Simulated scan of single mutants.
Amino acid sequence: MPESIHNPLLMTPKNTALLVIDMQEKLLPSIDAAARVTWNTRRLLDGAAILEVPVLGTEQYPKGLGATVPEIAERLGEVPEKLEFSSCNCVAEKLTKLNRPKVLLAGIEAHVCVQQTALDLLALGYDVLLAVDAIGSRFRQDKRIALRRMESCGVTLTTTEAALFEWCRVAGTPQFKQISGLVRETEPS
């Protein structure tokens, strides 16, 4: 039987970290499709816990924008505060220690903090992926243009479901059964 192929383009639990950006109480209600963004971010966090993918998070000026929403906060642990739009300086040291070449991003807002973080991480040599259904902006056009810009700069676009199955890699394991449960959840209306 041939040896299993390990394509370096694919995310695995051993080569990826998940970074959740600024999913905060006062900002989230104004985000287009906020319930879907929150749901997908939560599913990514649950999948990361099942498959032991390390997770990081940030909060943008919590004094003004509030704390991370409880559904996300309870899955993140300690979250550093920032004033810079990019999360890169907040998480760079932790990412270096994790030694994961790939970073999957989720959070808000696509055209501000997510985009600046993605571009800074690219400049540091990371492979940056973006779960497009787990990010948002107040206005669809801002998100649409941010996705185009990030992709043209080298960010790889994916979805929550694709990321979960990519991390899982194979069927027939207890982890696959849990990931399948996350995938089968009903999307919020």
Rank of each mutant, 00 (worst) to 15 (best):
L121P: 07
G66V: 00
I50Y: 03
E81Y: 00
L130N: 06
A146M: 10
N89F: 06
G66K: 02
L65Y: 04
G107E: 05
L104R: 06
L44T: 07
E109Y: 03
C88Y: 15
I135M: 06
P101L: 04
V103H: 12
I31N: 11
L76N: 05
E81M: 04
R149T: 09
A33I: 01
K143L: 08
K94F: 00
S87Q: 13
S152T: 09
P54H: 07
E78M: 05
A67E: 14
D127L: 09
A48S: 15
V132R: 15
T159M: 11
K94P: 01
V55S: 14
W39S: 13
A92G: 03
S86N: 14
L104N: 06
S137W: 12
L119Q: 13
L130F: 10
I72R: 03
L122V: 11
L76Y: 05
L45A: 11
T159L: 07
T158E: 13
C153S: 09
K97L: 13
R36Y: 05
W39A: 12
Q115E: 15
N89W: 00
G47R: 10
A118R: 08
V79N: 05
P80V: 02
R100I: 04
P80R: 01
T68Y: 04
M23K: 06
A123W: 04
N99P: 01
H111P: 03
Q116E: 12
N99S: 14
R149H: 10
V112T: 09
K63C: 03
T156P: 03
R138H: 14
P70R: 07
Q60M: 01
N99E: 14
V103K: 14
T96W: 03
L56V: 10
